[in-house]
């Protein structure tokens, strides 16, 4: 499980780094105080952390989506084996 998480985190970091590279504003002119060097550094750091979180959450939730599918499939097979109809799903 923790190995999966490490892989996900790794993928999220790489993907965020690629996104950051594609978004890199090389034309910065530092003219306006919210565009000072210190603020830009803060933007890059905060943006990167938030992007990693979104990617990580996405990968984790996508995994759960497939997990649900597998679980439901198993339940269905079990239901069919015991002769119950699929109607038994609780809403």
């Amino acid at each position: 499980m923790s190995r999966e998480r490490i892989i996900r985190m790794g993928v999220a970091i790489v993907a965020s780094a690629v996104s950051l590279a594609l978004s890199w504003p090389y034309w910065r002119d530092f003219e306006y105080w919210p565009e000072s060097r210190a603020m830009w550094l803060a933007y890059f750091a905060l943006g990167f952390v938030l992007a990693v979180y979104v990617f990580y959450a996405f990968l984790g939730r996508l995994g759960t989506l497939f997990l649900h599918d597998a679980l439901e499939r198993a339940q269905r097979l079990q239901g069919a084996a015991t002769g119950d109809s699929a109607e038994e799903h609780k809403p």
Binding site: L20, S23, G47, A51
Partner: peptide
């Protein structure tokens, strides 16, 4: 920067 990064997501 913000628009590029987050709309990439």
């Amino acid at each position: 920067f913000w628009g590029s990064l987050f709309s990439a997501l």
